[in-house]
C-alpha cells in the first residue's frame, strides 16, 4: 500500500466521522457563553487574553531577571563572607597559639625543676654518656657557631666555653643546647641582656624544625656572673627541655603541674636553692615561633 493510499484510506474513513459529544458539553458551553457575554462588549475580546498572556510572559521574564539578580547577589555575599571568614581564620589560630604560649611558660617552669633534678642524678653515673653528648655537642656546635655568627658574638669564645662545659662532669648530661645556654649566660653576664639567649634559642629551633618544640632555658644569672669570670664551669647549667609534638600527654602533665605549682612555685624554687632564674621559652607550633623570657 502506497503512502497516498494509506492517507486516502484514513482520510475517507476519519475526516468526517462525527462523534457525539456528551450532553454536558453544551451546558458547559452555554455557561461559558453567559460568562463571556459581558466581556463581549469589548471590541475584540479575543485580543485581550492574548495580550494578557504576553504580559504574563513579560512579567515572568522580568520576574526571572529579579530572581537571577537576587541569586547573584546572594552568591556574591556568600562568597564574600566566606572569603572574609577565611581571612579571619588564620588570625584565630595565632591568637590561640598566643594563649597556649602563655600557659606554656608556667608549664616549662614546672618542668624545668624536674629536668634540673635529672641531670644531678645522672651526672655522677654517666661518664660514657659524656662522650656521646660531647659528640652531639660537637655536631651541634657547628650550627651554634653559625648562630653565634649571626648574633654577631665571638664564635670562638663560645666554642671554647662549650667544650669546657662538655668536659665539665656536671654538665655532661646536659643536652646539646646546654653549651649554647652557657654561652648565652656568658653573653648575658657580659651584656646584661637576655636578648642574645633568645636569639640563639630561636636560631636553634629554626635549625631543628620539629612539629612542636618547647625550648626552655634556665639561666642562673648570678651564678654565671660569678662563675663565668672565674671559670666557665657553672653549677646550675641552663636546662633545656624539648617536647616533641607527639607528646600531648607531656603537655597535659605539664599543665597539671602548672596548676599544682602555680600555688607552690616559689616553694619549689626555694627548695632547689635557685634564687633568681631567667627562663627563656621558645615554642614552635607549625610556622609560628614564640619566644618569651621570664625572670623569677
Amino acid at each position: 500500500m502506497s503512502a497516498e493510499e494509506l492517507d486516502k484510506l484514513f482520510r475517507d474513513k476519519l475526516k468526517d466521522r462525527p462523534v457525539a459529544p456528551s450532553n454536558e458539553a453544551w451546558e458547559r458551553l452555554q455557561a461559558r457563553l453567559q460568562q463571556a457575554a459581558p466581556q463581549q462588549e469589548t471590541p475584540n475580546p479575543f485580543m485581550v487574553p492574548v495580550a494578557s498572556q504576553e504580559q504574563k510572559e513579560e512579567r515572568g521574564a522580568v520576574r526571572m531577571w529579579y530572581y537571577s539578580a537576587a541569586a547573584a547577589v546572594t552568591m556574591l555575599l556568600g562568597v564574600g563572607l566566606w572569603v572574609n571568614r577565611a581571612d579571619i581564620d588564620p588570625l584565630q589560630p595565632s591568637a590561640t597559639v598566643a594563649t597556649v604560649q602563655e600557659t606554656k611558660p608556667a608549664a616549662i617552669q614546672n618542668s624545668a625543676p624536674a629536668t634540673t633534678v635529672e641531670p644531678y642524678q645522672t651526672a655522677p653515673s654517666a661518664t660514657a654518656q659524656e662522650e656521646t653528648f660531647a659528640q652531639q655537642e660537637m655536631k651541634q656546635a657547628q650550627p651554634a657557631q653559625a648562630m653565634a655568627a649571626v648574633s654577631g658574638k665571638a664564635a670562638g669564645q663560645q666554642q671554647t666555653s662549650k667544650r669546657n662545659a662538655v668536659t665539665a662532669p656536671v654538665k655532661v648530661q646536659e643536652e646539646k643546647m646546654t653549651p649554647l645556654k652557657e654561652q648565652a649566660v656568658q653573653e648575658q653576664s657580659l651584656l646584661a641582656a637576655t636578648t642574645p639567649a633568645n636569639v640563639q634559642e630561636s636560631a636553634k629551633t629554626a635549625s631543628e624544625p620539629s612539629d612542636l618544640k618547647i625550648v626552655v632555658k634556665l639561666d642562673n644569672t648570678q651564678a654565671t656572673a660569678s662563675l663565668a669570670q672565674a671559670s666557665t664551669t657553672v653549677d646550675h647549667s641552663p636546662n633545656q627541655e624539648e617536647h616533641t609534638s607527639g607528646s600531648g600527654r607531656v603537655l597535659k602533665g605539664i599543665l597539671k603541674q602548672v596548676k599544682n605549682l602555680k600555688e607552690g612555685e616559689k616553694v619549689n624554687l626555694e627548695e632547689l636553692g635557685i634564687t633568681k632564674h631567667t627562663f627563656a621559652l621558645e615554642t614552635r607550633i607549625g610556622n609560628k615561633k614564640i619566644t618569651k623570657t621570664i625572670e623569677l
Binding site: D16, P18, A20, P21, L33, Q40
Partner: peptide
Amino acid sequence: GDAKAQRLLYERFAGPMMG
C-alpha cells in the same frame, strides 16, 4: 450574536468537530 444561531451551529457541528 443570536443565541438560537449559536445553538444551531453547535447542533450542526458538534459531532464532526468532536471527531
